[in-house]
Amino acid sequence: MIEKPAKGVTRRQLLLSSATTVAMGAAATAKAATIAGTPQWVPFDHNGPLHYDTPGWQYFTDEQAREVEAIVEQLIPADELSVSGKDAGCAVFIDRQLAGEYGTFARLYQEGPFQPGTAMQGDQSPLNPRQRYTLGLAGLTKYCQANFKKPFSGLGAEQRDATLAGLEKGTIALDGIDSPLFFQQVLGNTMEGFFADPIYGGNRDMVSWKLIGFPGARYDYRDYIGLHNQKLDLVPLSIVGSSAWTQKG
């Protein structure tokens, strides 16, 4: 129904056509391509995220998952404000992201040359997120075993904090990966998991949205535009739904 356009315009054609256009001046009418027909439509088609309802770890081994859960628990501890990063599902979120296209930076240019850039230039690492986790977790386990005879998950809160602080500052070196790079990777993904839509595995029960009063992924606030200085008390809404949808009684 829709014909593929011919191969790109050559330089010669472009020069010729622009010359013609100039020659013809304002009287020239552009012939735009007309596309008729409608794109394919399939019943039940949807663009939902991968793995959102698949149980079990999709990328991590059980051992890796245990360590990541210990890290996210330390980064976001349970307190009077919220449950911990672990209980909010941040490790599940990270696992799902690594299993998907993000894990291999499928959408980023990842061919060399790789050179250490300036701070302004941001991340210049050749490693993709999967490699960062695999190398970082292995290095961390090796470091903890060497110094405490335990994996990171076996450490107490103070040792965990000290270790993470050492990674952040680069005072603890890891085999195979720059330790601040690994730390920033995990910290960033943990925050994403804590605040992202629950459909991606984290932010369980919209815990962070309730914490900050974010009403969720709503399309449209037209009905609320006129309501100034009023508490709306909107029940947060995820792509997977809302507690308000459950029939009460």
């Binding site: 008729a36 027909g37 409608t38 439509w41 019943p43 039940f44 088609d45 949807h46 939902g48 792509i239 997977v240 739904g241």
Partner: peptide, 23 residues
């Protein structure tokens, strides 16, 4: 399942309703 409207010469857009079967 969602639905697709008909496309006519007068109204060629054929707007579609997304499927909510999955969520």
């Amino acid at each position: 399942s969602g639905s697709r409207a008909g496309a006519t010469d007068a109204a060629p857009t054929a707007p579609a309703m997304p499927s909510f079967g999955w969520n």
